[in-house]
Design a protein around this nucleic acid. Structure first.
Lengths: 355, 355
DNA sequence: TTGTACGCGTTATCAG
DNA sequence: CTGATAACGCGTACAA
């Protein structure tokens, strides 16, 4: 009779073993081991600790999850695991989690709300301590209700859910992120200050939360500075999307400067333009967002976002919710990182004169 | 009396609820739900399935893990979560795992054997179905014994451990990987065929499994072709290591061609050489290993390794060990991907003539 | 302050 | 083929 018959278990010792060796009841042993703030005499406490050491006892995480409804496990839900931005944030979560013996569960959603919903459910069933929603999302109204419901269930069950980018339809969920609107406004201002007037934005289709906000920031600034209407190319998130956009620009019309939704997209634009013989930054300036390592490698102008720290902060919030219970909406400072893909605009006449 | 008091549980239904509604015993319900190959009459089976549907019942993974000693969870242990190679393999694992409702646990070890050991133990305690050891490792003899012991314990407990790169001191563990020695021999041959004689290798310190093997492959071929002794720069794994190595080469002496331990390293070399005004591939050829997306972006010559497929294969092996029980040491084919950072050697005289 | 006993939700054994 | 029932290892009301 009993479970787990096939495992030749290397004789792991259980809490009752510890209790027996220490000559106390399992309850007392539990109170000592689990660090409960329950009064236990110093004598017994010492005995239990000694016994635990002798037996090399380690609490069983699964049994604990069973009993407490909580496991030392953190889910991180990203749009694409291989995207450098997501990878960096995830690493931040993992490092912080590891410090406290938490396990990090990687959930890559292909930016599908349904997949996020399914993952959230799985995490809840596994009693994850919390979940980090790293990226933005499409405003997929058909799937949205199920998603919200799942977030609600998770929260009700005591899971900590943290957003690392604002989710418009997820009010009440603590969020720590940069100010996308302002960030893009700053970047636009920076490019304008270099003399660029005809701007282009390359990003995902309409309806993606963070992209929409960034685009709004761009448009506001363009309007305020009385620049011409910006070109908007909605080809996607990644490197390939950047390539496509660049090809379209090459066929159509070159702007003064291009802003990518992310470094990935901007890099796609950059490489494709250069391959086609377009001088960057002399003819066209290119800038991205994220400050991934790739961007550093090629000297791409970008906006610095503390990716690891964001991940670590989210993890910290999940591991110890009490500590940072206060702030529900924290804003991280961004910073423009000017590098070699942006430069003062060279007006055609001057260019001709120089040539 | 009882556990989990604080959770306002959204009334999840349990197996006994299903059993009650179906008018059968929990045992029968379990046999139907868990898909055990245990005889249950069609009538009762239908009743249970109906009841489960009505209640929207889902088995509890934690309780299952408790009872069976196995959870639908796969650990993937990598050297650095943000390294593109590891990220890609991890994504492969995740995609395959997701298909079967498995969760992927990301374990980033900073290439420290101790961290790998600790993670392995944590995974075992959490009843992970298996673990994927993705990268190589330093031959850290002091820590090695504990590591091996942990692998052994994991295996004894029924976990599937799979290596995606040979671990010399882990005999008996199923491994699916490329042939590092031959791969590097091929690449060396390729560079030699372009007329390059003075080769350089940039990689981690001595004693790192995969690097040692690759270097051996290089050396063999160099000897066979009677090329001069190669330069070996042991600066590390990543982009920065490549930069350092390049700086040293610039100060010291430029080879005809540089091979990086990985694409990351090679890219560091490439960018730094170009920043310093060294023409690649005209003056120096540069090649890497992995065929990461980054390498594609900048047109780096490299060796193609099917990263996602490797991850997926490892996951498949863990999810369904019976299926592929046979082969314990599978070798994946590699392929040289010539791109724009390698070219036929231009001998100084010719270069002068051309200039 | 300590101990007893039950429950978490399954699976597996053994008796019908 | 079906059903009681004992585990799995822990946390925790409740009684002492």
């Amino acid at each position: 009779v009993g479970a787990n018959p096939s495992s030749p278990q290397a004789s792991r010792s259980s809490l009752s073993d510890v209790a027996r060796l220490a000559g106390v009841s399992p309850a007392t042993a539990s109170r000592v081991i689990s660090g409960a703030d329950y009064p236990v005499s110093a004598t017994l406490r010492a005995k239990v600790e000694q016994a635990a050491r002798t037996l090399g006892y380690t609490p069983d995480p699964v049994a604990r999850a069973m009993a407490t409804g909580r496991s030392r496990t953190i889910g991180v839900i990203v749009g694409a695991a291989t995207d450098p931005y997501f990878a960096e944030v995830t690493h931040g979560v993992e490092e912080r989690a590891r410090r406290d013996g938490y396990l990090t569960i990687l959930c890559s959603s292909d930016r599908e709300l349904d997949v996020e919903t399914a993952y959230l459910r799985l995490l809840r069933e596994h009693r994850a301590a919390g979940a980090v929603l790293v990226g933005g999302a499409f405003d997929d109204s058909a799937r949205l209700e199920a998603f919200r419901r799942e977030v609600e269930l998770a929260t009700e069950q005591g899971m900590e859910v943290v957003c690392l980018a604002p989710r418009p339809h997820l009010a009440g969920v603590p969020t720590v992120s940069v100010d996308d609107r302002r960030m893009m406004a700053d970047l636009t201002g920076y490019l304008a200050s270099l003399g660029h007037r005809r701007l282009a934005f390359v990003g995902p289709a309409d309806g993606f939360s963070t992209s929409d906000v960034r685009l709004a920031g761009l448009r506001e600034t363009v309007a305020a500075l009385q620049l011409p209407e910006p070109m908007v190319l909605r080809t996607g998130f990644d490197y390939h999307a950047g390539r496509q956009a660049a090809i379209r620009m090459l066929e159509d019309d070159l702007p003064d400067a291009v802003i990518g939704f992310s470094d990935e997209t901007a890099l796609g634009v950059l490489m494709t333009l250069r391959d086609a013989g377009v001088a960057v930054p002399e003819r066209v300036s290119v800038a991205g967002v994220d400050s991934t390592r790739e961007a550093e490698f090629v000297g791409l102008t970008t906006i610095s976002i503390p990716m690891r720290e964001l991940g670590a902060a989210a993890a910290a919030r999940i591991i110890d919710p009490a500590r940072e219970a206060g702030l529900a909406r924290e804003v991280i400072k961004h910073r423009i990182v000017p590098r070699q893909t942006t430069a003062r605009r060279v007006v055609p006449a001057m260019a001709a004169a120089r040539a």
